[in-house]
Nucleic acid binder design. Structure first.
Length: 261
DNA sequence: ATGACTGGTCGAACCAGA
């Protein structure tokens, strides 16, 4: 089965791209971020016609996340348990897969703007709360996938300019420590389980020909809990829709998960 | 050095993204 994540930068602007991409890539689960729409605007019907159930946690103008799934979902949870947040950034659901239930946790992590700002402090508090909540979530759900737009480039090789951008947003030691702390919970960065091209990125700035010059960052990730590691068959970044007209600035990331034995 | 693009909200220039 395949599980994907894609920050679409407005589902209103990108609905046709999502539908076109799903026809070419009929993944079992697609996690979306930055819907930029309230729940009542969510295109449930058209996605249903495409074969997908949806669990939605929208927000007007900013943020907003959703899980699309071919199989029914249950136990849908919104935002980080025990953490009060007026921004819609996390949705979780359990998907019944052939090899047993999978807990899907879809996050649109805080951007954080720049170290020293209020937004950066919000990012740090948010990441701390996420980790604490995930600790319990993983105990309850051994087969767990944490995926989405992390807004963290975990290592220097995940940035087009690690020296020039050292200790700037997405590259700070503090953010990277938070990423490592997620791994220490028992999660594995599935992309790095496999050999990958150098300069693999999932986001490119719209400005200054960012994509054409491959000036990007790898900030969209799919982490899997340890029991799922032997089932991971591949993880790729699909740059194709980034070349379409009026693209999202992010590309989808796709994990191929074996059915298991 | 700062700007650059893009989407949303408006109903003109913002904010926010990364």
């Amino acid at each position: 089965m395949k599980i994907a994540t894609w920050n679409v930068n407005s589902l209103t602007a990108r609905l046709q791209h999502v539908l076109d991409w799903l026809i070419a890539n009929p993944v079992d689960v697609l996690c979306l971020q930055e819907l930029k729409m309230s729940d009542d605007k969510f295109p449930l019907d058209v996605l249903k016609s495409a074969g997908y159930e949806a669990a939605v946690f929208g927000q007007k103008t900013y943020n907003g996340v959703a899980i699309l799934s071919l199989a029914p979902m249950r136990d849908v949870a919104r935002n980080i348990g025990g953490f009060t947040d007026d921004q819609s950034r996390v949705i979780a659901a359990t998907v019944e897969a052939p090899a047993g239930p999978l807990r899907i946790v879809n996050g649109y992590f805080v951007n954080g703007q720049a170290p020293g700002t209020d937004k950066f402090e919000y990012k740090m508090g948010w990441l701390r709360a996420l980790r604490e909540w995930l600790h319990a979530e993983m105990a309850a759900h051994p087969n767990l996938v944490l995926l989405g737009d992390f807004n963290i480039a975990p290592e220097d090789r995940d940035s087009f300019d690690p020296v020039g951008l050292a200790e700037t947003i997405h590259h700070t030691t503090e953010e990277r420590e938070h990423f490592k702390a997620l791994l220490q919970l028992g999660l594995v960065d599935s992309f790095r389980l496999f050999e990958q091209p150098e300069k693999s990125f999932s986001w490119w700035d719209y400005r200054m020909l960012g994509y054409q010059k491959n000036r990007g960052l790898r900030i969209d990730h799919i982490l899997v809990s340890e029991p799922l590691v032997p089932r991971a068959k591949g993880c790729i970044i699909d740059r194709v829709p980034r070349k379409w007209e009026k693209p999202s600035d992010h590309a989808p990331v796709v994990l191929d998960l074996d059915q298991g034995v």
